[in-house]
Amino acid sequence: MRRTRNPDRNRAMTRVATVVLSTALVLTGCSHPSHTAHPSHTARPGSTQAAGAAAPTAPDARHIALKGAVNVRDLGGYRTSDGKQLRYGAVFRGDALGKLTPADLAVTAKLGLKSVVDFRLPVEVRTDGADRLPKGAAAITLPIDDTGLYEQTTAAIGSKDPAEQQKALGDGKGAETMRRIYRTFVAEAGARQQFAKVLRTIADGRGLPLLYHCTSGKDRTGWMSYVLLRAVGVPASTAEADYLLSNDIRRTADLRTRDGLKKAGIMRDPRLIVPLQEVRKDYLGAALTEADHRYGGFDAYLSKGLGLDAGTLHKLRTRLLK
């Protein structure tokens, strides 16, 4: 006799499974920051963080402590190779904003945001909710394809089948999937177009202050931030450190997700999703290698891949540096 399915239980299982992808970048507090007092949103070791957020360890981090988002940061303060500094309060990076609390909205209102760019796919927005934005912030939707990772991984996790989960994510498959996605950031015309639009919007200046984000604020957002920092002359090592900082900021929240999946009986081995939750040097390296292969280097990627001419790059640097 066929067992009748429980719709409520199935929906709950699906929701828990998709939460994992909210913490794994799929195609990614207590002190309230002030737009005029920029050091107040620098999280330093020992400072109090929002629930689920580990204290950033990099001294250049400008973490915005929120309860409904873990990985929101000001890109200000980074130094270029010639000694200039990125302005505070101009460009922010983040994770999904659909769970912001009223107190969070009060914090983000102080940032004075004019534009919020959302890299998420429609399925991600349907699952996690549209952004909650402070007044005056215009939503800009620029979805970047994840090559099917979201739905494929959700299906594997939601199956509750250890063999199916191992087949989809084990034996290095999770990490290889992430490297493949990073290569598409550079190879796919649609992705290049979206990243270029953000850079042109920043260079134009009328949409600043601007925040861009994906689901977890680490992959699409991480690559966007790396490209922006390098484009204005920040050393590669510094841009890489900003990219890797997501691991420190997200560590506690990601661990809780894995614990929740195991306790709920959905995953026997939740460590399988660690490659999806983390950012890694070799993921970034996959994108950079693709840029070398297709264009001959990072600078050529900016000009040929993203179509940014010298004038646009000059305006970008003028706009952001002091």
Rank of each mutant, 00 (worst) to 15 (best):
Leu21Gln: 05
Pro102Thr: 02
Val227Ile: 12
Arg62Tyr: 01
Lys114Ile: 05
Phe195Ile: 01
Arg319Met: 15
Gly296Pro: 13
Gly311Ala: 14
Ser81Gln: 10
Leu121Arg: 14
Leu210His: 07
Thr28Glu: 14
Leu169Gly: 02
Cys30Asp: 10
Gly217Lys: 04
Ala287Val: 04
Lys110Ala: 13
Pro56Tyr: 01
Ala156Cys: 08
Lys281Asp: 05
Pro162Val: 05
Arg79His: 10
Asp242Leu: 04
Val198Asp: 06
Ala236Asp: 14
Ala43Glu: 05
Arg251Lys: 14
Arg317Ile: 05
Asp95Val: 00
Ser34Gly: 11
Leu313Ala: 07
Gln166Lys: 15
Val234Gln: 06
Ile64Tyr: 00
Val16Met: 15
Ala50Asp: 02
Leu321His: 03
Arg11Asn: 12
Leu245Glu: 10
Val186Glu: 11
Ala65Thr: 01
Leu261His: 03
Ser159Thr: 06
Ala264Lys: 13
Leu229Arg: 02
Asp161Leu: 09
Glu151Trp: 09
Arg180Pro: 04
Gln166Ala: 12
Ala155Ile: 03
Ser47Cys: 06
Ala231Gly: 06
Ala287Cys: 08
Gly29Pro: 06
Gln85Ile: 05
Asp282Ser: 11
Ala61Phe: 00
Ala300Met: 11
Val198Leu: 13
Leu199Trp: 02
Pro143Asp: 05
Arg294Pro: 05
Ala43Leu: 00
Leu169His: 04
Ser225Val: 03
Pro209Tyr: 01
Pro102Cys: 09
Arg192Lys: 10
Arg294His: 09
Gly174Arg: 07
Leu100Ala: 04
Leu97Trp: 02
Thr127Val: 11
Ala291Ile: 01
Ser115Cys: 13
Pro134Ile: 00
Pro7Leu: 14
Phe119Lys: 05
Leu97Val: 00
Ala189Glu: 14
Arg200Asp: 07
Leu113Arg: 11
Ala168Phe: 06
His35Ile: 03
Gly170Glu: 09
Phe298Tyr: 13
Glu176Asn: 14
Ala236Pro: 04
Leu316Val: 07
Val279Met: 08
Cys214Trp: 00
His38Gln: 03
Val117Gly: 10
Leu308Gln: 02
Ser81Asp: 12
Lys304Arg: 13
Thr238Ala: 13
Asp118Cys: 09
Arg132Met: 03
Thr14Gly: 15
Ala61Pro: 02
Arg93Thr: 00
Ser81Tyr: 01
Ser31Cys: 07
Asp8Lys: 12
Ala12Thr: 03
Ser115Gln: 15
His293Ala: 15
His38Tyr: 02
Arg87Cys: 10
Lys304His: 06
Gln152His: 15
Arg126Tyr: 04
His213Thr: 02
Val16Cys: 14
Ser216Glu: 14
Gly129Ser: 09
Asp82Cys: 11
Ser159Leu: 06
